[in-house]
Amino acid sequence: MLLKSLPDFQYCLTAAGNRVFAAHEKAGEYILMPDSLALARPDGKNRACRLTLVRGRSPKLAPDPHGLLECMPGLHYPWEEALQSIRKLRPGAVLRPAGFSRCSIFLELPDGKRVSGELNGIHFLFHESSFELKLSEEAACMAKSLQENGLNGVSGVAEVVLEGVSPRLPVKVRFDSRKLLAGIENFSGKGQGIGRPEILKFFSQPPEYLPLEISGKLKEGTLELNPWLFAETLADRFIYRFGTQLSSGIKGSFEWDLSVPCRVFRSYVLPLRTFEAPGKATSCRELVVPAFRTEPMQVKVSADLPFRIYGLFALGVTLRVPPYREKAAGFRNPWN
Rank of each mutant, 00 (worst) to 15 (best):
E232Y: 04
G252T: 07
R320N: 11
A38V: 12
G117L: 02
H76T: 11
T233D: 06
L107V: 02
V264T: 04
E224V: 04
R102G: 12
K219W: 07
R325F: 07
P306R: 11
E326M: 09
I122A: 07
G164F: 07
D111G: 08
F292D: 08
Y77G: 02
L270G: 05
A38G: 08
P7F: 03
G243E: 05
Y324F: 15
G117W: 01
V288G: 01
E232G: 01
R57M: 08
F238E: 01
K4M: 09
F254P: 00
N152F: 09
V20I: 15
I194M: 09
L83S: 15
W79P: 03
S129P: 02
A158S: 15
N18W: 01
Y268A: 11
C141P: 00
E255V: 05
L246T: 04
P290W: 08
V299L: 15
S166V: 04
S253Q: 13
R55L: 04
C262K: 06
P65W: 06
G243S: 06
A40F: 02
R266N: 07
G150M: 11
V160K: 01
A38T: 10
K144S: 10
K4Q: 13
L6P: 00
L319I: 15
R308N: 15
F238C: 05
Q192K: 13
N149V: 10
P278I: 07
R19D: 14
N333E: 11
E213M: 13
L133G: 00
I309P: 02
A23M: 04
A231T: 04
L135K: 08
L270Y: 02
K327Q: 14
L162G: 06
L39C: 07
E128N: 14
Y209H: 13
W79Q: 12
